[in-house]
Amino acid sequence: MLTFRKALIVAAVFVTLILFLRSSHPSSESAVAASPETVAYEISQETKEKAPNQNAESTQQQPMKEPPPPPTAPLRERLHYHFPYDLEAKFPAYIWQTWKYTPASVWFSQDLRQPEASWTEMNPSFVHQVVPDDTLHHLIKYLYGSIPDVLEAFNSLPIPVLKADFFRYLILLARGGVYSDIDTTALKPVVDWLPDSVDLSTIGFVVGIEADPDRPDWHDWYSRRIQFCQWTIQSKPGHPILLDIVTYITEETLRMKKAGILKKGKMDKTIVEFTGPAAWTDAVFRYFNDPEYFHVEPGTTRNITWEDFTNQIEYQKVGDVMVLPITSFSPGVQQMGAQGIDDPMAFVKHDFEGTWKTDPSL
């Protein structure tokens, strides 16, 4: 006799059997739990099927990068392509110096140890690199291997001081940051060189006045009436001033090499006019008077002259360039209006060791 309890048990067994059969034979609408291999295969197939359309859409939405200029293009154009200038970018936290040996060498001069160390002490968050002479070639080859004429010019320079001059422009053009001679001492952190009120997205270059000789015989002592400092420079990569000086030195080097006069004692330019402060000052003024970057009055050939900087005692912003007074990078020289090393505007002390003048290769 079928009691209620037995009937309940039979019903439970029947329901269980139905559920089991459904799970063992799923219909087309049932959800199937796939193995990892199956999922991977299906995703792979789906990706392959959709990839062409996705790539096409990506190509349409993102503009393609312009191809590099041909090797026959003007040097300035090729340099600009490889080292573009971004005014709104941050100043890179690099400090570059160069010397015959690294500070780790026993041959590194004891007189230079404290000046060199001051840069790391004042700027602990910066990458501070002293590049020795035997490494210069390899670094420049790495940075400028795609621009062979620059590499040829650097390797062809017959005197180490010329390479040291050229190096500062090359490293700043490619990497940016601060370059400072090995015989300089940091008096203030780099981040304190510019006032907080200045929008750094509008500044791409910082240069100081080296000399402002207000005397009739100034040309007996200096090459230019206002001379800009090249022993300490700060820049964002790709700045037009650096592009200009690198182009100038490269072309002049290869010109003298072709003429057979790129040799010690035979060059038709002095070091100062070839790679030093005279050439550097001219490059800065060329930028200030370039109608591509500055407004130049019709009928005139110069927009800014030395008169705009003589007797300067404060900051002066010219376009995207901040010009510092003579005190900033030449404090304590006791002439031309320079104040002492304790002045608020004193940032870098130059010891004027003139190490390049004692180079035996000169």
Rank of each mutant, 00 (worst) to 15 (best):
Pro240Asp: 08
Glu307Asn: 03
Tyr222Phe: 15
Thr358Arg: 11
Gly319Cys: 04
Glu210Val: 05
Ser58Trp: 09
Trp119Asn: 11
Ala153Trp: 07
Asp342Thr: 07
Asp134Arg: 08
Arg286His: 14
Pro103Phe: 09
Met345Gln: 05
Arg5Ser: 14
Ser30Gln: 06
Arg224Ser: 13
Asp217Leu: 02
Phe228His: 10
Lys266Asp: 11
Pro71Arg: 06
Val131Cys: 05
Ser27Gly: 14
Asp149Arg: 12
Val191Arg: 11
Val246Ile: 09
Arg302Gln: 14
Ala93Ile: 07
Val190Glu: 01
His80Ala: 14
Pro298Ile: 03
Ile326Gln: 09
Phe83His: 10
Asp308Glu: 08
Val198Asp: 05
Thr300Glu: 03
Gln230Glu: 14
Ser30Ile: 03
Leu200Arg: 15
Thr358Phe: 14
Ile261Ser: 11
Pro148Leu: 02
Val296Tyr: 00
Leu172Asp: 05
Glu307Ile: 01
Gln62Thr: 15
Phe4His: 09
Ile261Thr: 15
Pro213Ala: 12
Phe274Tyr: 15
Leu324Lys: 03
Ser109Phe: 13
Pro84Met: 04
His239Tyr: 10
Arg215Leu: 13
Leu75Gln: 11
Thr301Lys: 09
Gly354Ser: 01
Thr16Tyr: 07
Ile209Phe: 01
Asp192Cys: 03
Ala56Glu: 12
Tyr293Val: 03
Ile304Gly: 02
Leu324Ser: 04
Pro240Arg: 03
Phe352His: 15
Ala186Tyr: 06
Asn155Asp: 15
His239Asp: 08
Ile43Ser: 02
Glu77Gly: 00
Leu143Ala: 05
Asp244Trp: 07
Pro124Glu: 04
Pro148Gly: 05
Leu79Glu: 08
Val318Ser: 02
Pro160Phe: 02
Gln60Thr: 13
Arg78Leu: 03
Ile18Tyr: 11
Ile203Asp: 04
Leu324His: 09
Ile209Cys: 02
Pro298Ala: 13
Asp183Trp: 05
Arg224Ala: 14
Leu172Cys: 12
Met267Ile: 12
Thr3Asn: 13
Tyr222Gln: 13
Pro52Leu: 04
Phe4Glu: 14
Pro103Asn: 06
Gln234Ser: 12
Leu8Tyr: 06
Trp99Asp: 12
Asp351Ser: 05
Gln339Trp: 07
Lys349Leu: 13
Thr98Trp: 09
Met1Asn: 09
